[in-house]
Simulated assay, not measured.
Amino acid sequence: MAPPPFPTSRKLARAVALSTIPHLTSRSLQKRDGLTVTDAQKVTLGIIAAYIVAIAILWNVPYIRWVLWPFKMLVIAFHEFGHAIACVLTGGKVKSISLDPREGGVTHMQGGKNAFTLPAGYLGSSLVGALLTFAGFNINGSKIASIVIGVCFLLTIWWGRKDWLTIGTVLAAVGLLVGCWFIAHAEALRFVVLFIGVMSSLYSVWDICDDLILRKVNSSDASVFAKRYGGSSQCWGVIWSIISLCFMAAGIVAGIAAFPQSAQQQRDDAQKFIPTKI
């Protein structure tokens, strides 16, 4: 029998090519879906932008900037917790944590590796901020984040049990988070977690700039780090600020990729995961 004519081969090749298009198209759509910003995420991004503007204004306007004071004390607690956990993980011992009403804090440690404990305050608080920003894209994610924060707060209270400001700040934060659990199946909790996350990320960057670039305070984590390991405090401050901003950006991108659910889907899911409502 004679072989089939050439046009039949062309048709076969075309059929094979067409059969692969759905698979390629499906893969392309899957990749696009991972980068697509949903309507719910656009709202979240808008809220993040509004938070950034509001924090920047409140931070610098006299008198009304005291509105942020409780949240500043909270993120300072994150800062000191970063020092403390790095100390423990590198073989040291945490003696105490205390917060200063003038927006300062100190962690008394014994042992540990200074190369890790010194930058852990700034980078730790910015990492916490990035994780909270990530969780703030989803109601159930915010629920889980609030539970983790609660555990961290218990450790902070243990280390700061001799300091009433530390205890009061932590208990007030826990009360706020618990109260938000009971509003619309914790939908309010998402916005509070998101705000604390943005605040923690921005506070880390602003504190570094304020101490090392604007006021040039000598007694900072970066100045101690520079004396021990070389370089200048300004240089280390800039490096840590860049890392902090990268953490925040990564938290936002990860939130977009991980939580594509619509607002209604989030509400429905929240009613199934530790449901609470007033």
Rank of each mutant, 00 (worst) to 15 (best):
F134G: 02
D269R: 04
I149K: 00
K216T: 00
Y229M: 00
A249V: 11
Q30I: 01
K143T: 08
G34K: 12
D207P: 00
S204I: 02
W206G: 05
S19H: 03
L58V: 06
S98L: 04
I64A: 06
Y203N: 09
R65L: 02
P101K: 11
P62I: 01
D268C: 01
V205L: 06
V217E: 11
P3H: 05
R267M: 09
N114S: 15
T20D: 06
V43H: 10
L214V: 15
F78E: 04
I149Y: 09
G230M: 03
H185L: 05
T44C: 06
T38F: 06
V53I: 11
A258G: 00
I52R: 02
I64L: 12
G168F: 11
F225H: 00
D207A: 08
G179I: 05
F225Y: 04
Y51D: 15
A56S: 15
S26W: 09
S204M: 02
S262N: 02
S233A: 14
S125A: 15
Y229G: 01
N114I: 09
T20V: 08
R215G: 00
I252Y: 01
V67N: 07
A226E: 01
L45M: 07
G251S: 01
W206D: 07
K216W: 02
W164Q: 11
F134M: 04
V178I: 15
A188C: 12
A263E: 10
M248H: 12
V170F: 10
F116G: 09
R267L: 12
A56N: 15
V106D: 09
W159F: 15
R161W: 15
L12M: 08
Q271K: 12
A250Q: 06
G141F: 05
T36G: 01
A257C: 05
I57E: 11
V37R: 05
V198C: 03
V148Q: 11
G124C: 05
G111R: 07
Q261I: 00
L35I: 10
W66T: 03
I167G: 04
A184I: 14
Q264P: 00
D39V: 11
A172Q: 06
G92C: 09
S241L: 09
N140T: 12
L155H: 10
F259E: 01
L45W: 07
V61R: 05
I213N: 00
L24I: 15
A222W: 02
D39A: 14
H108S: 13
R215I: 01
A250T: 07
W66L: 12
P62M: 10
